[in-house]
Write a protein that binds this DNA or RNA. Structure first.
Lengths: 163, 163
DNA sequence: ATTTAGTCTACTGATTTAGTAGACTAAATA
DNA sequence: TATTTAGTCTACTAAATCAGTAGACTAAAT
């Protein structure tokens, strides 16, 4: 499970994607719209700034805006910046090959499986840009506007029974 | 990142898969071979027993053994039993649809992406049995035995640069 | 009766998480 | 230049979780 830091960060970036054409958006506005504790969001935006996803301007009319096109920001990059490697086990992240304590990491069958899992998740998250997320969201909203009853059906169809 | 509980549990089950034909194996033996703290492993094996993956026998000649074929035990099932849902966010696990705090969960574009990520990871882990893990491990060992220099190359080829 | 081996419960130290609080700095503008 | 606006930076903390450790107990075999 990803941290709430990652959850809020991605929500904030989606919010800024939705307001990308307008000027800078203020922390308070993002916080209110996205239901995020203001003071916590401040810290998270600072992290996103250090990581190069957003820029800021102080003073009246200031606020935050994406530092590049939402087409060039992937979910994977953001999650890594907030929560570290996507790897399910340290032995398949660059930083921690030999630190897993496994008796024979070089021939470990589990390691192979963890690697596949990491690659699968990375493929999805690195292949998803905030532009795509925005477009998908608009499509969902259109669908729901046409037929409000579709909501529950959509959920049943899209979610597998597996947690 | 999965817990060390999940790490040890999967290592223990792999160990029991490797000794599946023999009788019960003792906690101490698993712990020594797999480099796991004995007292911690006790607790984990109890969890695995409750979850139905293993059976135990007390007294001399006793120990633990798989309660069904390693062909019928998947990595996904074990990870869920140890660490809970594979979902990267609560909003895409059965238990927590509406508890994410998102303003509009039903049309959330992020939720769609998290769902895809969860399905990707679930496909890999639910599609990997302990028989497969054992066979892969044996294959790796054979390769390494033939050419000890291949180890580093294998690692370079198999791991993407992405964490 | 003794040994062997799993079972059960409680506890603990360390770390991380998810925030809160408050003082400070820079930019705009009147 | 004073004031307001809005981001910045540092410190702190309550609660939860994690990764074990400790020790007494139970059941099976001989």
């Amino acid at each position: 499970m990803l941290s709430s830091r990652a959850k809020y960060a991605t929500r904030a970036l989606l919010d800024m994607t939705l307001h990308y054409e307008e000027g800078p958006v203020q922390i308070q506005d993002i916080a209110h719209r996205q239901n995020i504790p203001v003071k916590y969001l401040e810290q998270i935006l600072l992290l996103l700034k250090v990581a190069g996803f957003v820029m800021s301007r102080k003073g009246p009319g200031g606020g935050y805006h994406l530092s590049r096109s939402p087409d060039d920001i992937t979910l994977g990059a953001v999650v890594r910046a907030m929560d570290g490697p996507l790897a399910p086990m340290s032995c398949v992240s660059i930083s921690g090959y030999s630190e897993c304590g496994c008796p024979h990491p070089d021939t470990c069958g589990l390691r192979l499986a963890w690697k596949e899992a990491r690659n699968a998740i990375a493929d999805v998250l690195d292949g998803t840009t905030f532009t795509m997320i925005r477009d998908n969201q608009h499509q969902l909203q259109d669908l729901l506007r046409q037929d409000p009853m579709i909501a529950t059906i959509m959920d049943d169809e899209n979610s597998s029974t597996k947690n």
